[in-house]
Simulated scan of single mutants.
Amino acid sequence: MEHYGPETYGELNADVYDEWHAHLDPADAVRCLADLIATGPPGPVLELAVGTGRVTIPLAARGIDLRGIDASAAMVARLRAKPGGERIPVAIGDMADVDPGTDDRFAMVFVVFSTFFFLMTQDEQVRCFTNVADRLLPGGRFVLECPVPDVARYQRNQSVDVHDVGLDHVRLVTVRHDPLNQRFDGHHVLISGAGIRLAPVSMRYAWPAELDLMARIAGLRPRHRWSGWEREPFRGEGMYVTVYEKPAPATPTAEAPRTAPR
């Protein structure tokens, strides 16, 4: 999609993002992330693509030291307008850089709701993994919520789905699939009495095994993979949660004494 950048989705959709995703209850994600934080090393926590703070604000309300980064100033403005959102430090920038304006090391970095796939090339996704690993404390975790790609739903590499219907509106999602580049380009299309509104979105999907390889390249190891935030066994379809961990440095062992020659 020409002229589509890291900030495009947020800049064009910030005013309707919370309304369109009101059906997504973050309670399970907040509870699971809080448990993971409690069992990891002490330190601050960073959310990539923090958006309007749907997950970060309730996590911070638990007393956790939260930071964020997002490419869209409009989305961050929505976060800062919410109660508690103004107290969360957020940097405006590319989440692949993992740079919230400091050189802090993090106990956990997380990205939810498919947003990791907003990194549009494999190189950017690998760079994100590598930068996350560099900024994690030993024993720190990188947590991702992603969908298993469902490419079978596309006929002739395209689809149109109905997401919402009311007396005075209909919201559609139209997508073109590029299997060579593992890319979806599409629009949320809102048709109402006020006219037609287009909300573009582009994503570069990756399979679970590909994410595991990115983690290995970055020096992270898989710790958990669940089919949801309630830690259900992984089914191989739908949304899933993966937890990668940065290994602690090996503890040097004393060299065994050599036996004197006879």
Rank of each mutant, 00 (worst) to 15 (best):
P41Q: 07
L172M: 04
M95T: 11
G68D: 06
R231N: 08
V170H: 02
P42E: 11
G93Q: 12
L180E: 15
V126L: 15
D104K: 10
Q125K: 13
P200Q: 03
N181Q: 08
G43C: 07
E11Q: 13
D104M: 14
P208G: 12
M120A: 05
G166K: 06
D28E: 15
A29M: 06
G166E: 06
P100R: 12
T259F: 07
W207Q: 14
E255S: 14
G166F: 03
V243I: 14
P41R: 04
D178Y: 09
A248M: 14
G5H: 07
L220V: 10
A199V: 09
A206E: 04
V76I: 13
M239H: 13
V175D: 07
N157Q: 10
A209G: 02
A248G: 14
R87Q: 15
P6C: 07
G5Q: 11
A71P: 01
T52K: 05
A74W: 00
N157G: 01
A250R: 15
F184A: 01
H163G: 05
I92C: 05
G219K: 07
P89D: 12
S227Y: 04
A206R: 08
E124D: 15
M203C: 09
G238E: 13
D99M: 12
D185N: 08
F234G: 08
P208C: 10
E11H: 00
G236H: 10
D104Q: 15
P249T: 11
G5T: 11
H169M: 04
M239G: 12
S114N: 15
T130F: 01
L211M: 15
R87E: 14
V170D: 02
P208I: 09
D164T: 04
M214D: 10
M203R: 07
I57S: 00
L24F: 07
T174S: 09
A209P: 00
F113W: 09
D103G: 14
V112R: 03
P89A: 13
A260Y: 02
A73H: 09
V143Q: 06
G228Q: 10
T253C: 14
D161V: 08
P149Q: 06
I64S: 05
V165S: 02
C146P: 02
R258N: 01
L119P: 07
D70C: 09
L220Q: 05
P147L: 01
F142A: 03
H177A: 03
N131F: 05
A61N: 08
M108R: 06
G186F: 02
P252F: 11
P249C: 10
R87S: 15
C146M: 12
W20D: 12
V112M: 13
P89Y: 08
D168H: 10
V143R: 02
L59C: 03
G228P: 04
A254H: 05
G195L: 07
V45E: 03
T121C: 10
A152R: 08
S192R: 04
L167W: 01
V165A: 06
F184K: 06
W20H: 13
P147N: 12
E237P: 00
F117N: 15
N157P: 00
A38S: 15
L180V: 14
E11D: 15
V30Q: 08
G68V: 08
P222S: 09
L119G: 06
C128W: 00
D168A: 10
F142C: 03
